[in-house]
Design a protein around this nucleic acid. Structure first.
Length: 867
DNA sequence: GCTCTGCCAAGAGGA
């Protein structure tokens, strides 16, 4: 919030003052709003706007004059003059922009004929999003906010299937039998079958509808591919800027090959991203001349509209293509229903207007929060104006959110003007909501938006294009200098196993571990985000990854980098849920009642009335394994009509084991805290369990610190021990293993424990993941500084469960057996995991966990998943 | 103070 305050302070200043603002203040703003941006000139320029002035030129027209700098020191200033419609770009002092065009004598001129300005170029907006903003900017912004409001439909499924069939055919064959086979095979894919089930459609009707398209596929291929004479190819009117002067726009079009399928491109130059259905090699025969171009081909399965939205999408893809190769100057729009293909030239005017829309959208997405006019209240900003087109609104899937936002947010705080004809519609859409509901929506929408904007939650992959791999490697979240080795193995649909080798020597110190999500890019500029996936295996020299695309089309010499996918703040799901909670349905109404208006949950009186007769034995069997308080709570859950809050903590059982050794001081280094002695002991104990006949997959190793996990992993790799899972406490949440070994790591003289271990919830998770045996390893004097652990030791000590391994550096080792004794450790009321499967089997709405007070913590309520 | 949580994604078509 401090940063936001700073920003607003700047925004409130007038232009004159802006220019005079001290450089440090600007630098502060840039650091807080654009933490990763490095100002730079040249092709990938990033300018900081220092001042904005509106002036009248000699012809009496308005121009926007910007004072800009591409230097971190802010010392060297350039100018940018925005003419014609560019004057309307909502650019403000402190903004980051990218400029395309020419800079002469320190001045950029962007006008209707030449040049582009890209606002917040590192914010990548998808082609479809921008295309949809043509009709209604508000809807485009709402769709980016409330994702998942678009219900899936039969047509969408058909569309997805047909895209896939065409894409397979173009690199295979369009022969009718082959098409049949590809269609059949595609329909059988699990993801499509699931979707059919969801939409309540049967396979046969989908198959039939898909098959209706296939003759058009063949017709298209017959027209555009594999002919003997050039003149057999369809004639089209297509003039490209590069053959200017020549009036001959007539040409024959030959589609030679498919260069790529679903090519995913990020363009930090134009601030765009997108996926190109098919990237095709095309020969354009004009007179006796032939030009070969690699161009985007966009497939459409719906009505042959050749609409401005469809064409715009293609124009945007020509911009994306420039990130990888020469400007295609045009693209193709193919309607699969008829096989009709339209050329879409990308002229300056279209590109200019689309980029202006992109800028507008970027502005709205960037400015989600505002300050109230009266003072210091942080509130949600207004969205783009509601349009006055009842026809467009009639079928809009964002109608509900649009009206809700207008009523709950805009009409509450702002003097925003709603078109009069839209007022009744807004009222109608929101009349089922009480004031308390609107308030709830406003509050949570604000909270979630703020959360997503907080510094460490901001989702951006900017490092990939703003920072070279060699520099990123220092953080441990990136590995560069990799080349692809061996063959790419296709594991499944959209899953390709790749092997990478560090080109020179060994892989540097890294945080990357098996299971981490990564983004694969080329080291060279144009190859950002070629593919996404997971690390499968990593050692000193090689990395194995499961990727979503097959990269064997790249030359083997291509230098690649892996970037750990930054955590993404998923506010999409809660925002989607919030939107759903406000829907005019019975289910949502009931939930509003319980959640917003706090209606007390209801319970029925007798279990026999709810339990199906044949479920009795099963339930009895499950209950038998629980202790008394667990059984009582379980009963309450079963009687629940609405929801049940379960207050609980896990644990029971005991036994002892003894070892001798872990002095075991911790090491603090760049990668984090670790404890080699504990690690060795732990690996030793693991080997004992395996020798004793335990299955490695039944053993889990937990440590709170990543560095410790790394050391344990290294030790395991050098031993003969197989696939033992090693992970952080948090990754084990909600799961368990037969045998769990925990390494507490911390051991020092001054009693520093760090905040991490002090989180009692984490401690709780760590000691409750074991089904049969739990071994805790740690330094008693160090850990004793913390009351909850002290309590634990007190108990363990009284039960003689602690083995002191060395006289002055005491280490405890213990395990106990869970579920074998009725007696609960610490008199814990519950074992939550025992409850949840049963609860969900009973179809409860909520399963709620209240954190227990056993460690003198404050009362926290956790609302867990809805069903 | 060194950890994690919600996570695949841009588009599938409608009018």
């Amino acid at each position: 919030m401090e940063q936001l305050g700073e920003l607003e302070l700047l925004m409130e200043k007038s232009f004159g003052e802006e220019a005079a603002l001290p450089a440090e203040l600007f630098q502060k703003k840039v650091v807080s709003s654009f933490p990763k941006t490095v100002l730079t000139g040249g092709m990938d320029n990033r300018y900081l706007v220092l001042a904005v002035d509106i002036v009248q030129n000699e012809e009496g027209n308005h121009e926007k004059h910007l004072i800009i700098t591409a230097h971190q020191s802010l010392e060297y200033k350039d100018r940018c003059i925005l003419r014609n419609d560019w004057c309307s770009v909502p650019v403000e002092p402190g903004d980051i922009i990218h400029l395309e065009g020419d800079c002469t004598a320190g001045t950029w001129i962007i006008d209707k004929h030449f040049g582009y300005l890209i606002l917040y170029p590192d914010m990548l907006i998808s082609g479809t999003s921008i295309a949809s903003s043509i009709r209604c900017m508000r809807r485009a912004v709402l769709s980016e906010t409330f994702r998942g409001s678009d219900p899936a439909t039969r047509q969408m499924l058909i569309g997805t299937v047909l895209h896939e069939v065409f894409q397979k055919a173009i690199s295979n064959s369009f022969a009718p039998e082959k098409l049949q086979e590809l269609a059949f095979q595609t329909i059988q894919e699990i993801k499509h079958l699931k979707e059919m089930y969801r939409l309540n459609l049967n396979q046969d009707e989908i198959k039939q509808e898909v098959e209706e398209y296939l003759p058009s596929f063949s017709k298209w291929a017959g027209d555009f591919m594999h002919k003997n004479t050039l003149t057999d190819f369809p004639q089209m009117q297509l003039s490209l800027p590069s053959n200017d002067g020549k009036n001959n726009s007539t040409c024959n079009i030959e589609v030679v090959n498919s260069v790529d399928i679903e090519e995913s491109i990020w363009s930090p130059r134009f601030g765009l991203k997108g996926k190109i259905d098919v990237t095709v090699g095309v020969k354009i025969h004009r007179g006796c001349k032939t030009k070969y171009k690699i161009m985007p081909l966009e497939l459409k399965t719906g009505k042959e509209s050749n609409s401005i939205e469809h064409r715009s999408q293609v124009v945007l893809y020509t911009l994306l293509s420039q990130e990888r190769r020469a400007d295609p100057e045009a693209g193709w729009l193919l309607y699969l229903k008829t096989g009709q293909m339209y050329p879409v030239p990308a002229n300056h005017l279209d590109k200019r207007e689309l980029l202006k829309l992109r800028n507008q959208m970027a502005f709205f997405l960037f400015h989600r929060i505002s300050k109230s006019a009266s003072g210091q209240k942080t509130q949600l900003a207004s969205l783009p104006q509601i349009i006055e087109e009842e026809k467009t609104c009639k079928y809009c899937s964002q109608m509900g959110n649009c009206a809700l936002y207008s009523r709950a947010v805009e009409q509450h705080t702002d003097d925003s003007s709603v078109p009069i004809i839209m007022l009744p519609k807004i009222k109608e859409e929101t009349q089922h909501l009480k004031l308390s509901h609107l308030e709830y929506f406003r509050l949570w929408c604000l909270m979630l938006t703020l959360e997503s904007q907080s510094k460490d939650n901001r989702k951006n992959h900017q490092n990939i294009w703003l920072m070279p791999a060699s520099k990123m490697e220092e953080s441990g979240n990136c590995i560069g200098n990799l080349i692809r080795t061996k063959h790419v193995k296709t594991v499944g649909d959209g899953q390709y196993l790749h092997n990478f080798l560090r080109k020179n020597g060994t892989i540097p110190v890294t945080n990357l571990m098996a299971g981490d999500r990564i983004i694969l890019s080329g080291e060279e500029r144009p190859l950002f985000a070629l593919s996404r996936g997971y690390v499968k295996e990593i050692n000193m020299t090689t990395v194995t990854c499961l990727l979503d695309r097959n990269l064997s089309i790249l030359p083997e010499s291509t230098l690649l980098r892996l970037d750990q996918e930054e955590k993404n703040c998923d506010i999409d799901t809660p925002l989607g849920n919030l939107s759903k909670l406000m829907e005019n349905t019975d289910v949502s109404k009931k939930l509003r009642d319980l959640i917003i208006d706090f209606r007390e949950p209801q319970f029925i009186s007798y279990l026999s009335s709810v339990l199906p007769h044949d479920a009795k034995d099963t339930v009895a069997c499950i209950l038998k394994g629980l202790n008394k308080p667990q059984r009582q709570a379980m009963k309450k859950v079963l009687l629940s009509k609405d929801y049940t809050l379960i207050v609980g903590m896990p644990g029971t059982g005991k036994t002892t084991t003894i070892c001798t050794l872990l002095p075991a001081p911790e090491q603090v280094e760049k990668g984090g805290v670790s404890n080699i002695t504990e690690a060795k002991l732990l690996v030793f104990l693991t080997s004992i369990f395996i020798k004793a006949g335990s299955n490695p997959s039944d053993i889990g190793i937990i440590a709170p610190y990543r560095q410790q996990l790394k050391i344990i992993n290294d030790l395991l790799a050098h031993s003969s021990i197989g696939m033992v899972e090693v992970n952080t406490v948090d990754k084990y949440q909600g799961r368990d293993k037969s045998i769990i070994l925990v390494s507490f790591v911390r051991s020092n003289k001054d009693g520093t424990l760090g905040e991490l271990l002090k989180d009692w919830r984490r401690l709780n998770v760590a000691i409750t993941r074991a089904k049969h045996k739990l071994i805790l390893l740690g330094c008693v004097p160090s850990l004793n500084c913390y009351p909850p652990l002290e309590k634990l030791f007190y108990h363990l000590n009284s039960e003689k469960l602690i083995s002191f391994l060395f006289c002055n550096m005491k280490v405890f080792v213990t395990y106990w057996e869970i579920f074998q004794e009725d007696k609960a450790l610490f008199s814990l009321p519950f074992h939550t995991r025992a409850v949840s499967p049963l609860a969900s089997a009973c179809g409860l709405y909520f399963v709620c966990y209240k954190s227990s007070a056993w460690l003198d913590c404050e009362d926290n309520f956790y609302l867990k998943g809805t069903k």
